[in-house]
Write a protein that binds this DNA or RNA. Structure first.
Lengths: 335, 335
DNA sequence: CTGAAAGCGCTTACAG
DNA sequence: CTGAAAGCGCTTACAG
């Protein structure tokens, strides 16, 4: 069944030592070019594959990375579970390209609260951790104090520094603000709870920045909540007097809003426009298709992978926060 | 940083041998009860964790399982990418409960075509494979011929036997058929391409079985295609004369259909009913919420995990096909 | 350029 | 019940 060919087999076939085979296959110095090639050819022919365990035990690295997602994002389908899983898939692909294996680990609420280090790290199955989606400050702090290499994906910690990769939400808001103003529109309502997450906050402030820049007034109270401060969705209170444009903090909420508007016989984009953020599955699930901000998940994944590998290999690595640029996608939800 | 406590440390602290520590911690015979407890307590206190690599190298098992998803399911968002990722998450959770680690591996179209064995198996990173979603017969056959332990999740091979866990689609169709007839309805149209996948076929035949059973007539031509035979969605041709009920082969298609019907001013469920299969995210994304068949992904995951572990440990294991029961969920899409 | 020796942390016979 | 010895497959100094 398994073709259990090991270095020893190659060495014996060639009448040389295992050490030389190891060096040749790992492209290390100390082997003649000709012999090296001969070894590589034979290894290929015999179908040799390293035994990761032996290698890892010696080197101390597993070449695997744990990707941590909190249980609550996955169980509760309400929210953006699938987005995180898609991010995981992107990360996993990028890791594979660098010779690493990504391992998904779901952190239970209890373990998050009790600050339990993931088993996969304790048992050295992985060399470092990528946190996908808001995890409690306390938990991250504990990881940091244990000197475990980690990177935050799409969120950041507030009272201490962490390496993280986030979408430039402030820029995203600005892009959307500029677009709206370029259409000659300026009467808007923002849908989202500014105190629910940092990204909603940043998105709103980016819009405000665009308005200030063009010397247009935007009332900070022109906001309607779509969720409570814990993040649980609540019903959206559509105002009697419609704005020119509703700016939703994410596509999913825009999706919900448009359904509501349709039920009230309000036509989008004729009666009022709707724009949002994310460019995820919800953006093209209902008509009109949404004008929205595309989050560059691919670039975010590439940078995250680079960063975690750097951190694993260089314990003195300085922490940094890397912002990834977003892009406006114009579709049909605004005239 | 790492608390590199190893068996040797425990042994030295207690003035005993590593062998004894190993036995005690692995609950093997050959240690006195009292000593065993003392060892366990100290291990806990010192924060000991096995080194998986050393253990795996000796035992020959990694205690990890590869979960294989074809690239095309993930890239092409069209289809049910997120569903597979949710399945992955369920499987991963079940594996964790058994002390295994699930590792996602995306199989590229090229590798699938060239019959390349996943790197994670070749390098002994995983002990076996779970295939998530239709993978080519040739590829699976190759895996089987290499005696690699594997289980198919939610699909099966046709010209040779494979261990697999599938939703009982035939039963699902039957459940839906019985429900429709119990409402006194019998004029239905099935939406789906009967030659696209085996599950669509089985679902349709299950409905037919319910009709035959109750001595009701269902014309085998009462079918409208929603996709071509490769699985690519095409637009749905809504007939002039509406049936009493549209039976869609999955929630996503029901979602699309209802949007179409709404556009034409047709009211669901007043003008006609809609039912479907899956009970996934699409089931409650649009009003009316769908009456549909719930696929028991949890049970499917549990059985899959049991089966793959059994196969890894028992090379003589007989192949089997395990059907998981589905359940009717009644909501508002049929009067 | 090549290889003998030692060791990574653990487990499996086997001997006492 | 306890432990000395050997070995899993590999890599890292170090010697020739």
């Amino acid at each position: 069944m398994d073709n259990n060919v090991k270095m020893k087999d190659i060495a014996e076939s060639l009448g040389i030592s295992v050490v030389t085979v190891s060096k040749a296959l790992n492209d290390k110095d100390g082997v003649g070019d000709e012999l090296r090639q001969k070894i590589k050819d034979l290894a290929m022919k015999m179908g040799y594959n390293v035994n990761r365990f032996a290698k890892s035990m010696k080197e101390g690295f597993s070449n695997s990375i744990g990707i941590i997602i909190c249980d609550r994002f996955l169980i509760n389908n309400d929210s953006k579970s699938s987005i995180y899983l898609e991010c995981y898939q992107m990360l996993s692909t990028e890791l594979e390209k660098k010779g690493y294996t990504g391992i998904l680990y779901t952190l239970s609420e209890n373990d998050e609260f009790d600050l339990v280090t993931p088993r996969i790290y304790r048992e050295k199955v992985v060399d470092g951790l990528i946190f996908l989606g808001q995890t409690s400050n306390d938990y991250i702090k504990n990881i940091k104090e244990k000197d475990i290499p980690y990177v935050l994906f799409d969120f950041y910690t507030t009272d201490f520094e962490s390496d993280c990769i986030v979408n430039d939400n402030y820029l995203s808001g600005f892009q959307l603000g500029e677009f709206i103003l370029s259409k000659g529109l300026e009467d808007i309502i923002f849908i989202g709870n500014l105190r629910a997450t940092l990204s909603i906050q940043d998105r709103f402030l980016g819009i405000l920045k665009a308005f200030i820049n063009k010397n247009k007034y935007l009332d900070v109270n022109n906001v309607i909540n779509d969720r409570d401060e814990k993040g649980k969705f609540i019903s959206i209170d559509i105002p009697k007097k419609l704005p020119q444009v509703f700016v939703c903090n994410c596509d999913q909420v825009a999706f919900r809003l448009i359904q509501e508007l349709k039920n009230k016989g309000i036509d989008v984009p004729k009666d009022c426009g709707v724009v949002s953020f994310d460019n995820d599955i919800y953006a093209t699930l209902i008509e009109p298709y949404l004008t929205t901000i595309d989050i560059n998940v691919t670039d975010m994944s590439i940078e995250t992978v680079k960063l975690i590998i750097k951190k694993i290999n260089d314990t003195n690595h300085r922490t940094s926060k890397i912002l990834i640029k977003s892009k406006l996608i114009i579709r049909e939800s605004v005239l």
